[in-house]
Nucleic acid binder design. Structure first.
Lengths: 129, 129
DNA sequence: GTAATCTTTCCAGTGAGTGGAAGGTCAAGG
DNA sequence: CCTTGACCTTCCACTCACTGGAAAGATTAC
């Protein structure tokens, strides 16, 4: 199938699919006319990439995951290690996000919402101390 | 203080601090010798940038967030509106991350982490379950 | 006094795409 | 058969938010 169909089936834009080929993630066949020709197996890999990128894995991590996916003798310990390190990152991000949420909530709570320019929280945070 | 100290205190690399100056996020003073000279107020802004960037806000969004601290002449109603819209974004980000966290936690919990070839993480990513 | 460690500027490269031009191909309608 | 429009191809440039490195000047430590 052509790249457009593969794009529809995988959820990845054609540009991205070509980019993934550029960086060696998958090599589809070529039709007589020079068009890329995607097999169902290629589409499965594209979907795999689409999902794992969406889970926050970097392209390099996706390359590793894809290799493990393709390798029937893979060790699931490798996959687990990658996923666990991602979990650590996610947790840190959530904690930081909550901190920022707190800061902004204070800001909003103490903001009069009228035309007066004074805002005690702004003054504090902008480093008067 | 010099850029190195500001870097230590803010957690941002000197390169990034200079970049933020380049794109007009903050303009430190200059010492006699031409070195950038950071005040505590500058350091607070840098720390704020460090946090908000780490949470997925774009530099343009950070510019707006920073304006909440800097622009004391702004009608506080505007300040409040911007802060509240950012709060909405933060909440959505937290929810998204929690979903991702749940998915990955579930997958890690069911992954044996041994040499057996079946791995629920890969199976899920590849979309057959 | 000299070596190590800043700091400065500028230029180039990264990751992960995205946009657009110039041209080749294909299926449908008149 | 011809044209139109939707595809497809390559290539080059651009994005964003940095990051690395070179060359040169300033400061600090022994």
């Amino acid at each position: 199938m052509n790249i457009g169909t593969a794009s529809d089936k995988s959820g990845l834009p054609p540009k991205t699919i070509r980019y993934y080929e550029d960086i060696g993630l998958l090599k589809p066949g070529r039709a007589e006319n020079g068009y890329r020709d995607y097999s169902m197996s290629d589409v499965h890999k594209l979907r795999f990439l689409q999902r794992s990128r969406g889970l926050g894995f970097s392209v390099e991590e996706c390359r590793q995951l894809l290799a493990l996916y393709e390798d029937k003798e893979r060790a699931s310990a490798d996959v687990k290690a990658i996923a666990q390190s991602k979990l650590g990152e996610i947790e840190r991000k959530i904690l930081e996000l909550r901190e920022l949420q707190h800061t902004l909530q204070h800001l909003v709570a103490h903001c009069h919402g009228d035309q007066r320019p004074d805002c005690p929280i702004l003054e504090t945070i902008s480093g008067r101390n």
